[in-house]
Amino acid sequence: MIQSMTGYGKSVIQLPTKKISIEIKSLNSKNLDINARMPSLYREKELNIRKLIASKLIRGKVDFSLYMEITGEETSTEINKTVVRQYIKQLKEVVDGDDTEMLKMAIRLPDAVTTERDDIDEDEWKQISEAIDDTLEKIHEYRLDEGKTLENDFVERVKNITSLLDQVIAMDPERIEGVRERLNKGIADIKEKVDENRFEQELVYYIEKFDITEEKVRLNNHLDYFLKALKSNDSNGKKLGFIAQEMGREINTIGSKSNYAPMQKLVVQMKDELEKIKEQLLNVL
């Protein structure tokens, strides 16, 4: 079953002193492109997170965000009281003002606030890792749902191309007869006596140049192969893209050989359906 590269997942866990929110978004991209945002406390785990995302999402433009909200009384940030008092003393020597205003100014100056870097608690990280796994599973489900919608669209458009191809096949004898009549009329207009055997040989050669039997057979095969590839266990957007290219090659050849306006109109409609397939394939994993 195919998967879309578009996906979204979010998980929230409550730890003893903090709330952790994990959010992952993915969009289509030729390769895997991961953008990770997280507090500095967890930066040492970034490589592990990237490896995990790469193993699960494979391809796409991925935005990973980990947000932390302190909910307990503990905090690693402290006011450097000695430094703040020195700042206030020096400020009073420069300007007049009440203590509250002096404090507001002092607290913004360098080293007025210090933050101690805590080590990651492994039990805490285990819960966060499980939440990341859960978020990736949500994205996987999202991608499958989107993939089902894409699959239905592909099946419908392949049916449309098949129907148009059936009309081309039904029209082909009429087209060949039209070629024969135009050649006969051309000979009659120049009022020249011709060798009938030689004329028939030239006519056969001319008609063979415009024969589209092989293209019709190959296009039918490509359409069947595309539908089978849609039902495979793996989602392979690149493989489907290659099949669509081959479909386009046969449709273009039919158009160039047709030399018949009603058939060329059908070819234009086939090209339009195929272009819509190709556009949607850009979002298939």
Rank of each mutant, 00 (worst) to 15 (best):
N28Y: 10
Q264S: 13
T17I: 05
I88E: 12
S4M: 04
R249L: 05
L103E: 13
D99G: 04
M5D: 01
K185I: 01
K276F: 13
A261D: 12
E215A: 09
S232T: 12
E44M: 09
I161V: 15
N252Y: 08
I120K: 00
G9W: 04
E46M: 03
V158Y: 03
V268S: 00
Q167N: 15
N252K: 02
S29T: 00
P16I: 02
A54R: 06
K126Q: 15
E122I: 02
S163P: 11
E124C: 09
I49Q: 00
E116W: 04
E273I: 03
I251A: 01
A36T: 12
I176Y: 12
L230N: 11
N35I: 03
I120E: 07
D99N: 10
F199D: 01
E273V: 04
E73F: 14
L281A: 01
T114C: 07
K228T: 12
A106D: 03
K159T: 10
K239E: 15
Q14E: 14
I212M: 08
K89N: 10
Y206S: 07
N48G: 12
K191T: 11
D111F: 08
Y42L: 01
R218F: 15
V268W: 02
S129K: 06
V155I: 14
V158W: 00
V12K: 07
Y67I: 05
T149E: 11
K89Q: 15
S11I: 02
